[in-house]
Design a binder for these strands. Structure first.
Lengths: 126, 126
DNA sequence: GCAACATGCAACCGATTGGTTGTATGTTGG
DNA sequence: CCAACATACAACCAATCGGTTGCATGTTGC
């Protein structure tokens, strides 16, 4: 069950781990672009850009819509949000760590309280 | 200037694009672990886990602290947050697209308004 | 001091990545 | 109809990745 989610996380982060693909995401989140319009923006072959688009599409970060002989590409902001939420989950784990540390500090205070006074001697030897 | 930021994004997303490394991040965000303690958790060699830790460290997602003969690893929640903020920036671009669409809709309404009535005939032929 | 542990690093290997070129398939305007 | 365009896909290549093993170094307990 959680296996699919890890597969999806692999695909998400891998897709975003390339600056050309991140730049494509910026453009297609701002508005629809055909694949060739995107390809014209980069100093590489059409096929290379098309493969980048395919990687992003397989990861679910963008969708394509046919319009005549063109394929219009559009970014999926929900997918971007779900990547962000994965990072928020990581942050929540960290919050748990801090909470545990706070508990320890509180426990320390509880241990100090029963003592008559922090500086009063417990050494009862005369 | 923005070049370094893209390099950092490359390192961040690449580091997180592996489930073992994401799992390591969960553990070290929850609390400090030695490298060998981490290695014991996975069905792979110590060297493999050590390389994963090195990738995460180079990306700035975790830090190491020497304690005797052990190296204690701790997750950096600030780095995790900065990855999340990169995704938020993407989402903001999308918001701009929606705002532009809303403007167009508003402009359309403005064009309709001057008409006496949507259904009233502009065809004045009797 | 030394045996055992914890770590780092290099060399190697198969799989994958990011790029190329070439070719096939639709789609459209004139 | 057909030439030009938009896309898809396969084959290939150098580089990188994720893993291994082996070895060197540092640290500790006794």
């Amino acid at each position: 069950m959680t296996e699919q989610r890890e597969d999806q996380a692999d695909a998400f982060f891998h897709a975003l781990a390339d600056r050309t693909r991140r730049d494509i995401m910026r453009r297609v989140l701002a508005g629809e672009h055909s694949v060739s319009a995107l390809a014209a923006k980069y100093d590489m072959s059409f096929a290379a850009v098309q493969k980048h688009v395919a990687v992003l599409e397989r990861a679910g970060l963008l969708t394509k819509r046919r319009s005549g002989r063109e394929q219009l590409v559009s970014g999926d902001v929900e997918a971007v949000r779900s990547v962000a939420s994965m990072l928020t989950e990581l942050e929540q784990i960290w919050r748990g760590r801090i909470a545990r540390i706070d508990e320890l500090i509180a426990a320390d205070l509880n241990l100090e309280e029963p003592c008559p006074s922090p500086t009063s001697g417990t050494t009862s030897t005369p």
